[in-house]
């Protein structure tokens, strides 16, 4: 703060001009601090992103091959591309597996851990259980993928060994069959994802005023009523954060698909990010891949803006309600 006055030493005498000049001079000296960040941003994000949009207007096989102007042709082709639509359909499945199920299950698990087990069996029980649920989150995605690939293997996988043990003669080829691949991937993602909402919601529950629960208990509200009337509205901000971050992550998901199925079999687990990667490095259709990536970016930003808008509206309504 003292720098503000230091920055404009000559102007202190004139009363009328002082405030404006002082205010301007106050933040200008800080601008150089933004330079390293701005340079890094331009080199790593701004310029590559602009180039990606630029490439999406061309037909290009990459490398030394010539760029051939295609206008919006790549985008027009996308509209007729069944694989492109499949990939976005699968994005919805990814949202179910990474946002909807983990948030709902995480909410219940967190409430049960905090409310029932933490209170009746002591904090150590709930802490150990919470750590167990969180364990898959610290596992690198490549390790998780390889591990599950091997568990779900049709011949030697642990799951099918168990299934054969209980008498199922012909257990499915989980990741190899188009009808079971997507549900299997979703299952793995749920397993990976569930710990995150549990941890966030448990810390949120610690913030909630216990007097609310005591008052509700006095009024004879059961556990479910208290959960619905107090827990859910009180931790709404955290729910929005979890929903936003997980939805963006679900739309961007690449690693688990890459290690588990590579989009197959028969495109049954194809997602937009993997489809664009496939076009870039496998099919050498760089312009087309860039178009997929650009569309994905627009979709992510639109979805994020919608979620943030909903959050703002919910907050405003809550303020008006009081």
């Amino acid at each position: 703060m003292p720098t503000r006055t230091d920055a404009a030493p000559g102007t202190t005498g004139r009363a009328t001009a002082t405030p404006r000049r002082r205010r301007r001079a106050a933040w200008v000296p800080y601008l150089p601090y933004l330079i390293p960040g701005a340079v890094a941003f331009v080199v790593v994000i701004g310029y590559p992103f602009a180039m990606n949009v630029y490439y999406s207007l061309f037909k290009w096989r990459g490398g030394m091959a010539p760029l051939r102007w295609n206008g919006l042709g790549n985008y027009a082709d996308l509209m007729d591309d069944a694989a492109f639509w499949t990939s976005f359909q699968n994005s919805i499945a990814m949202i179910v597996a990474m946002v909807v199920v983990p948030t709902l299950v995480g909410l219940i698990l967190a409430a049960v851990l905090f409310d029932v087990l933490g209170r009746r069996f002591g904090p150590r029980v709930s802490t150990v259980l919470r750590a167990t649920y969180y364990l898959p989150q610290i596992l690198p995605v490549a390790v998780a993928g390889v591990l599950w690939n091997w568990i779900l293997n049709s011949q030697t996988g642990a799951l099918n060994v168990i299934l054969r043990g209980v008498g199922i003669e012909d257990p499915p080829n989980w990741l190899g069959d188009p009808s079971t691949a997507l549900p299997s991937v979703m299952l793995v993602l749920i397993w990976v994802q569930i710990g995150y909402p549990v941890v966030i919601f448990m810390s949120a529950l610690q913030r909630v005023d216990p007097e609310l629960y005591e008052a509700a208990e006095l009024d004879g509200a059961g556990w479910w009523r208290r959960f619905r009337a107090i827990t859910i509205p009180q931790i709404r901000p955290e729910t929005f954060v979890v929903t936003l971050t997980c939805t963006v992550a679900a739309l961007k998901v690449f690693g688990p698909i890459y290690v588990l199925t590579r989009g197959g079999p028969e495109s049954s687990t194809l997602v937009p990010s993997y489809y664009s990667y496939l076009n870039f490095f496998d099919k050498s259709k760089v312009g087309y891949g860039a178009a997929v990536a650009t569309v994905l970016t627009v979709v992510i930003i639109v979805v994020a803006v919608v979620i943030l808008g909903l959050q703002n509206r919910a907050e405003r309504r809550e303020l008006e309600g009081r």
């Binding site: 992103f49 490439y55 891949g289 990536a293």
Partner: peptide, 18 residues
């Protein structure tokens, strides 16, 4: 924030090229 939300695929080919 927007930079954080960008999919890596929207940057990867130009970065690879650079």
């Amino acid at each position: 924030l927007v930079a954080n939300m960008l999919p890596q695929e929207a940057l990867i080919y130009p970065l690879f090229d650079m």
